Amino acid sequence: MDFESVPTATNHLVSGSNPYAAEVQFLRSAYSVTSAWPGSPGGGAGSGLFFRDPTVYGSGTRGAMLMWGDDDGQGNTSLVFNVAGGFSAQFSMLYGALVASGTVQVFDGLDGQGQLLGGRDISGTAPCIDPKTGALLSDFVCNWGKAEINFSGTAHSVRIFGSNAAFFLDDVQLGQAGGGTLPEPGSMALSLAALGLMAWRARSRKP
């Protein structure tokens, strides 16, 4: 899930547009946002104070997910999403924040419940420097860490807990690279068409 196809500005993934609805259900504290950085894909037309320097990360980013919801009184919230079909072996994502702390947990049950299969801590990333001028950007997030969890069993939900309205999350991968990742919207139809063509070719070769 790379959130590149989300609407401009800010979108509630729970009650608004969810391009991954066929596979993933967001339960709370999940907003998709597009970048406000002028040099980002899409020209910085959004409201999200983040970007990625393509010379460092290989590509820029237009969209990301912001963990933002009901505060527990100590400045924290929980973002939870379900994967009804399940995924196995690995969970990974990119994250960026100015000053923040949190945890990522993978469960075998829905709604962030059941057996805990794996987890890890996440925290604030390095201060952001303007790639053009070298000046410190005190509001923007542009340095990204990678959170990876390897586990046994089949996971059906993910819970991210931590500093409210601080973490930007991106490139969420469910399962190992090359097997088990969610297809981007539109790619499922292309995959089905390719499979149909392969089946037709196989039939046509039979005597």
Rank of each mutant, 00 (worst) to 15 (best):
V172H: 02
S191E: 12
Q176W: 01
S92D: 14
G153A: 09
S101A: 14
M1Q: 04
G48Q: 11
G42K: 06
P38D: 02
S40C: 07
K146W: 00
F167E: 02
Q115M: 07
N76G: 01
M65Q: 10
T154G: 01
G63L: 11
S17W: 03
V80P: 04
A135F: 10
D2W: 05
M65H: 02
D170P: 08
K206S: 09
W68K: 09
T125K: 04
R205Y: 04
G180W: 08
S5C: 03
S152F: 04
G69D: 09
L136Y: 11
T34C: 06
P38W: 03
T77I: 11
G179H: 06
G42F: 06
D71F: 01
F50R: 07
L98I: 13
S59I: 04
R201N: 10
G119T: 00
L110C: 02
T8Q: 10
S35I: 10
L98V: 12
A199P: 00
S78E: 15
L182N: 09
G124A: 02
G63N: 08
P185N: 08
V141Y: 06
N150S: 13
G153S: 08
T34P: 01
P127H: 06
E23Y: 15
P183E: 11
V172C: 05
I160S: 03
R62C: 07
E4A: 08
K146D: 00
K132L: 14
G44Y: 03
A45E: 11
G58R: 09
K146M: 08
S163N: 04
A155R: 10
Y57S: 11
F3Y: 14
S78T: 12
T181S: 14
